[in-house]
Design a protein around this nucleic acid. Structure first.
Lengths: 344, 344
DNA sequence: ATGAAAGCGCTAACAT
DNA sequence: ATGTTAGCGCTTTCAT
């Protein structure tokens, strides 16, 4: 008990009630001010604002959630099997973009790593419980049932990276992989390279398919250019192996476009082992503009994706759906940029 | 209204009340079961459990928070200026460790990027509001007031990476940087290298200081070994410059221990430019065992930190404090491992 | 424009 | 061991 005989609150945090008392208005009016209602007299408005400042009042999230039935929380789900993705610097940029955009809203960002089916279940549960108002999904596997389940559970979803299969109503953000690959290949062509090979990504992932399509598109109709395709899996070892294979098929090749920086780094190794100079004998271009690209020797020319911007767009996609559940959004495809370094 | 005249809940989610009705017990008893109280008859226990399963009941987080005055949420604060850290693969492992450990608790992980002072303010506010029960801090700047402010605000804090200045009551987790650096240096010595240089990290960061100390300690008392120290900032360019400097001072040096993989990658470039073969002429060791280490040519021998384990320990540090606010915890220092690759 | 009051779903103290 | 009940802090009708 305080000296005036009233119970002390456990935490020192002021409540809306206290603000109302301080401002000589009812709790209802105070609430209206906090929530920006227009039906408040200028006089009351000021009194409440002053009280809020004086007391250092901040709304209680739990109490508000309880009555509004919203959580003001969005979930970023990272499939652990994709932790290469997670570990790449571009993930940091993506999250920065998300944060930037979310910081203009009352939404909190919850992070969950969902590797197992059991954890996928937890995600769905969180959605059904209303603990989460919306979900960001990162780089799905082809046949992942998660997005559809989440949508069925009633949550808006936004996906980063074009899903291979139809994913229901979930909009996505992606870089323009095809166009990026096309520019890279055209750059090699314009350099005068005429024996241009590519190392593809896995063909069950959109990024793999689209980048190969870009390579093909760049060379379509061009005469006097030899095309050469080897299959990779985005990993360095596969790039190295693919390059050896390519070299065996055509020892005179003078350019390689790899669908990932890691594969390009592998190509660099294989080329050096084969005694080829880069870029003198063979030019190499990677994709992603990852950390690795900056640290190989020679440094890699690479196709950059605007990850931070993609993060912002991703956030916008979800925010829009949150504001109006009925909105049907289209995918957002952002342009890439070719970053020239030493390998071309 | 439903046909039986009672109001329908907006969301279909069952409440504890409905569980109680279904199980023919009071809400109180149902609550006891949900919260694992022992004062429940086996009979009631089963009835409630069945009802929970049948209805698919899950507790409402907001309602619980409201009454318990806990949020069951912990916050991971990433200083954006440290986004190199964030982007490194080891961050993924750290988060995985955190998630793993937190998944055994009802704690949710909230992610916030706090670059600006304004955002630091937001973090403090979240703590004061009770929106967050505890905070993880990652790689602080020397004189960052955040940890102390948070502790003052009443939140348990756990820090990853030894802070330079005293940080108050916050325990931390770190790798044994000194011992890691010592093993690396000793490895070079045991290889027969006798002109062993080091490229240090910034000396206003614990990792920089400790790794230099490890180098010194390894060589202490050894005769016939030349020591050579150049200053770096953990970045690749600084490693390249430092190596040129080192080479100028001692053209015969036969080993370099760099306090980061990025600097080691820079060293590799400078050595190649200078016509030195690695590891034949000069052996190189980095630190962090990052993605970059696996993709340089030659691949880098590097000191690995057990990031996932560090994540788990970090979580434990916070969980312990959450359970008992009075606990005073000691720092946790985890051993490193030397990963041998092609550069030695 | 404002006040009064009814809950949101839950826990915990109290009574039995 | 179980039921009853008083709030937790807030938003939102419904009156006025």
């Amino acid at each position: 008990m305080t000296s005036d005989g009233r119970r002390t609150r456990a935490s020192g945090r002021p409540t809306l009630e206290q603000v109302a008392v301080e401002a000589n208005v009812s709790r209802g009016t105070a609430s209206r001010v906090v929530n920006g209602s227009l039906e408040v007299s200028p006089w009351a408005l000021k009194a409440v604002q002053d009280a809020i400042r004086k007391l250092g009042y901040v709304p209680n999230h739990a109490a508000r959630s309880l009555v509004t039935q919203r959580s003001d929380t969005v979930l970023l789900v990272v499939s652990e099997s994709e932790d290469r993705v997670f570990g790449e610097p571009f993930f940091a940029s993506l999250v920065r973009g998300l944060s930037l955009e979310l910081s203009t809203t009352p939404l909190q960002l919850n992070l969950i790593m969902a590797n197992t089916a059991r954890q996928h279940g937890r995600v769905e549960q969180q959605v059904r419980n209303g603990h989460v108002d919306g979900v960001f999904l990162i780089s799905l596997h082809g046949d992942d049932p998660l997005p559809r389940n989440l949508i069925d559970a009633g949550a808006p979803v936004a996906v980063i990276g074009r899903p291979m299969s139809d994913i229901g109503a979930a909009p996505y953000v992606d870089a323009d992989n095809e166009s990026g690959a096309r520019s890279a290949t055209e750059y090699l062509y314009n350099q005068g390279r005429r024996r241009i090979a590519t190392i593809t990504g896995p063909q069950d992932m959109a990024a793999g398919v689209d980048r190969l399509a870009g390579y093909r598109s760049a060379l379509r109709g061009k005469r006097g250019v030899s095309r050469l395709i080897a299959q990779g899996d985005f990993g360095q070892a596969s790039g190295e192996a693919a390059t050896r294979e390519l070299l065996a098929k055509d020892p005179t090749l003078d350019a390689i476009f790899a669908a990932s920086d890691l594969m390009a780094a592998g190509a660099l190794r294989a080329l050096r082992a084969a005694g080829r100079r880069v870029p003198d004998d063979v030019a190499v271009i990677g994709f992603d503009d990852s950390e690795v690209a900056r640290h190989t020797d020679p440094a890699l020319t690479s196709v950059r994706q605007p990850m931070q911007q993609m993060g912002r767009e991703l956030a916008k996609l979800l925010i829009t759906q949150l504001r109006d559940r009925e909105t049907k959004l289209s995918p957002v495809i952002l342009p890439t940029e070719l970053i020239i370094r030493e390998s071309t």
